[in-house]
Simulated scan of single mutants.
Amino acid sequence: MKIGLDIMGGDFAPKATVLGAIEAAKILPEGQQLVLIGDKDVALSILQENNFSAENFEFVHTTEVIGMGEHPAKAVIKKPGSSISVGFQLLKDGGIDAFSSAGNTGAMLVGSVLSVKTIEGVIRPAMSTNVPKLTGGFGILVDVGANADCKPEYLPQFGVLGSLFAESVYGMVSPRVSLLNIGEEEEKGNALCQAVYPLMKENKNFNFVGNIEGRDLFSDHADVYVTDGFTGNVALKMAESFYVISLKKQIKDEFFARFNYEQYGGSPILGINAPVVVGHGISSPEAIKNMVLLSRDMAQSGLVEKIKNAFQ
């Protein structure tokens, strides 16, 4: 298995990404190799500084980068030599089995759809994140930003994607799928939620357990929380702030520590024809390592084939 990593993506790239690649390489077993996509000379220099052999990696050299502030679609088209574009071309051609980057999120979404494309039957790919539970473990929140504006028919598909991801990658048995809403009652919510509820209730492709409110997001009421990308992204950013606040207030608490984004590595793009993970722009080496391992786990789990089968 070959796992592609964009070493030019992220606020602290390429140093943080290469250091993260070193940590991931220490864990990967024989038969699994990292392919570093980006400036090879810089990568070799960082590896030499850290006394780590370059023989642990394959390299695909490119110096062009899509910046964080660039327009995603325009950048992907105008910069075919960028580390993100090259990574997706390798993924499309079978040169790598999974791809991850902490670079421009929009470019990663655009690149996914333009290169490996959306799985047939999936209307819109979605992004997910892990949400810690007070009782231990975590749930899956989907969508967290890929689709700010959603039609009712999108969300039941998010339920299928999230359920299969939880089941395949994390081993959850018959994960409980819920709709994030402003009340538990079936008739509650805005026009979108009211239209979505009966569609999810009728869907036999996942274990639907009804609405949950925001206050239940960190409870054990469900395993997969479905929402539109706008609401999901707001919830994600708020959850991330819990960890930052706990550090600033010098609160040492195991639960708040589990809000640290570094532990989860990144957000998978679900519903496309290959494993792709997008990392946080401020990703540290620890986050990069976990992002790489998550993309590996997605490839190992056969998640893409399972999604294809579900949408046939």
Rank of each mutant, 00 (worst) to 15 (best):
M1E: 12
L5Q: 15
A13C: 02
I22L: 09
E30F: 07
G31L: 09
Q32P: 11
V35F: 02
D39I: 09
N50L: 03
N51H: 12
F52E: 15
F59I: 13
T62M: 01
G67N: 11
G67L: 12
A73R: 06
K79T: 03
S82R: 06
I84Y: 02
V86N: 09
G87P: 11
Q89S: 14
D93Y: 04
G94R: 13
N104L: 08
A107P: 03
V113F: 08
L114G: 04
I119F: 06
V131C: 08
G145D: 03
A146T: 09
N147Y: 08
E153Q: 15
Y154V: 13
V160F: 01
V160S: 08
S163R: 00
V169C: 04
G171D: 11
G171P: 14
S174T: 14
R176K: 13
L179I: 00
E185D: 11
E185Q: 03
E186L: 12
Y197K: 07
L199F: 06
M200E: 07
M200Q: 07
V209Q: 00
N211H: 14
L217R: 01
S219V: 06
D228T: 05
A235F: 12
F242C: 15
F242P: 10
F256M: 15
E262R: 10
P268T: 06
L270N: 08
N273T: 11
N273I: 11
G281M: 07
G302K: 09
L303A: 05
L303Q: 07
K308D: 05
